[in-house]
């Protein structure tokens, strides 16, 4: 069974390995380039938020943006879609399409074992590939830490580092297998898998805010919180007794003429309102929640994966031809 699994799926394994190697080389080149730039442009305390770092920061951001826009921006979504379509969907779809299920399932190996070994073995490889990707992206990101901040607040990068990529890839692979057991056509299964991932991914990104109760801070710390790489989830007003309200009474602290829409006018009004006991607060998830959020998302995806796996197995074992 091990040989058969390898023989039937080696194209996917080799292609994925090849793509990861190419991506790794790209990231390595980018990281080396950035490191060399830093070594040649030593400015005390840079990179960092200080004023004298502007040139260094810009150079690093430019190098970061190059790679991010070329591959990493689309990879969080494209990766799972490709894994689901090319690793998952053909596993059953191609057998039904060519009638070879009638050959494979009438050997001395039970369908349960046939599917178990194939799915199990490929799942291990998919997880390993996902972890390898995350390790590479994580290492590359660490070079740019001081200019772009942690990956936490970037929904795309968040799904490329830690355990997120592995969880997504495993979910997508199992989804592809489950869909192909039902539709029994490779191409149709690929399309459905693509569509489901394109639908689920944004839902998961939006669901992220709900993984924990957000923290609150005064609106005056807004910029500082943002700089620390937190996820901002909203802002609320509280009145004199600390209750949440939609807006402070408009009669209070009217803006000076001509200042209503300016930042200075806004700040003036905020401090006036604060003097009256009305506080603007921001709700946010601090970057320190990175791993908590990583594992929460991974757990949700893992449970979905298990359900899809159960669907794939029970559907295949039903022997309804």
């Amino acid at each position: 069974m091990y040989w058969l699994t390898w023989r039937q799926h080696r194209a996917q394994v080799l292609a994925t390995t090849g793509l990861l190697v190419v991506l790794g080389a790209l990231l390595l080149a980018s990281a080396l380039d950035a490191t060399r730039y830093l070594a040649e442009h030593v400015v005390a305390g840079c990179p960092g938020p200080a004023e004298q770092c502007r040139a260094v920061n810009a150079a690093l951001t430019q190098r970061y943006g190059l790679v991010y826009q070329a591959v990493l921006g689309i990879l969080p979504l494209l990766g799972p879609a490709l894994v689901g379509a090319f690793w998952g969907a053909p596993l059953i779809g191609r057998e039904f399409e060519r009638g070879t299920n009638k050959l494979a399932w009438t050997q001395s190996v039970s369908v349960r074992r046939w599917l178990g070994v194939k799915v199990g073995l490929l799942a291990v490889l998919v997880v390993a590939a996902g972890l390898a990707l995350s390790a590479m992206v994580g290492a590359w990101l660490s070079v740019f830490d001081d200019v772009v901040g942690p990956a936490f607040s970037n929904a795309g990068l968040f799904n490329l580092v830690g355990v997120a990529a592995a969880a997504w890839w495993l979910f997508a692979f199992t989804l592809g297998v489950a869909v192909s057991t039902i539709v029994r056509r490779t191409l149709a299964a690929m399309a459905v898998t693509f569509a489901v991932i394109a639908l689920v991914f944004p839902v998961m990104v939006f669901a992220r805010d709900a993984y924990a109760e957000p923290l609150r801070a005064s609106y005056t710390e807004y910029q500082a919180i943002l700089d620390q790489g937190a996820i901002l989830t909203g802002n609320v007003w509280t009145d004199t007794s600390g209750r949440e309200i939609a807006d402070p009474p408009s009669a209070l602290c009217p803006p000076a003429p001509g200042e209503a829409d300016t930042e200075a006018g806004q700040r003036k009004r905020d401090s006036c309102l604060a003097g009256q006991g009305y506080l603007a607060t921001v709700e946010y998830h601090p970057a320190s929640r990175f791993w908590r959020f990583q594992w929460t998302q991974a757990a949700i995806l893992a449970v979905s994966t298990a359900l899809l796996g159960a669907v794939a197995f029970s559907w295949t074992l039903r022997r309804r031809q």
Binding site: M1, R7, R98, G99, T100, K102, A104, Q107, S108
Partner: peptide, 24 residues
């Protein structure tokens, strides 16, 4: 089976390996 299914991209030798691996 009626349509004599085989893995078309396998070599004949690999089909034999398939048989060997899956049958005691």
């Amino acid at each position: 089976a009626q349509d004599k299914p085989l893995y078309r991209n396998f070599r004949v030798r690999e089909m034999l390996r398939f048989g060997r691996d899956l049958n005691p």
